[in-house]
């Protein structure tokens, strides 16, 4: 599985994502600059956390025009995997690859803490190593993670099982509608989430619950890849 992590000016979780994928899957990972014009050889593209373009105007608003994002759109259309974490989730909603938008936290403050998530759908390429309803601990670190979608969109997300992670009841850290922490597109190959699975890959970092997200992707990729090969 060939993986790419996109670097925008202002990305700062790019190296963390690279280290996490290497450590959990032992697959090759490249850091690719936002000006990259051909990412067709990558099976997984990560849009990492950080403050792309300083988050000026709106978080993720400027990054969506980077040449590399055209390649992300192609990957999504091809059915390859796209994972947007934190700022990456914001970029994916801004660019229309995922529905909804991320508003400022209802506390109006940046929040960095361990959060308890509930796995809402384990039938995705990103979550098959989790059980549905399982509670996992993954940290958040964001000022604009308050997910919003209108009623109609929300109904649609629910109907298609697109809600993948929810914050545990009573522990919604930012005011997200329906406690949403992460969603996939209808096809299920693009995941955006505010919590940072790449920060939860070792108990000495407080949790290792994020590992299975990466191992899930690898396994699904392995199956499809094997199918193509044979």
């Amino acid at each position: 599985m060939k993986c790419a992590v996109i670097q925008f000016p202002g990305s700062n979780c790019d190296v963390d994502a690279l280290k996490a994928i290497e450590e959990t899957t032992s697959q090759p990972v490249d850091l690719v600059w936002h000006t990259a014009r051909d990412l067709s050889s990558y099976d997984l593209i990560v849009v990492p956390g950080g403050f792309s373009y300083g988050d000026y105007l709106r978080a993720g608003a400027i990054a969506k025009f980077a040449p590399a994002m055209k390649e992300v759109e192609k990957a999504a259309a091809d059915g390859r995997f796209v994972l947007g974490i934190c700022n990456g989730f914001q970029v994916l909603t801004e660019s229309g690859l995922l529905e909804g938008a991320l508003r400022r936290n209802d506390s109006l403050q940046f929040r960095c803490e361990m959060t308890e998530l509930v796995v809402a759908n384990h039938h995705t390429a990103f979550t098959r190593h989790y059980a549905v309803g399982e509670r996992i601990v993954i940290p958040i670190a964001h000022g604009e993670g308050n997910y919003y979608a209108d009623e109609q969109t929300l109904k649609k997300l629910k109907k298609h099982g697109q809600i993948v992670f929810r914050y545990a009841k009573e522990h919604n850290p930012n005011g997200s509608v329906d406690d949403i922490a992460g969603i996939v597109n209808e096809r299920g190959n693009v995941l955006g989430m505010m919590p940072h699975p790449e920060r939860a890959i070792h108990s000495r970092l407080g949790s290792a619950d994020g590992r299975r997200l990466f191992t899930s992707i690898l396994e699904v990729w392995g199956e499809t890849h094997a199918a193509i090969q044979s």
Partner: peptide
């Protein structure tokens, strides 16, 4: 295109 996010 850029200055607003029509979703919100």
């Amino acid at each position: 295109d850029l200055l607003t996010n029509p979703v919100i």
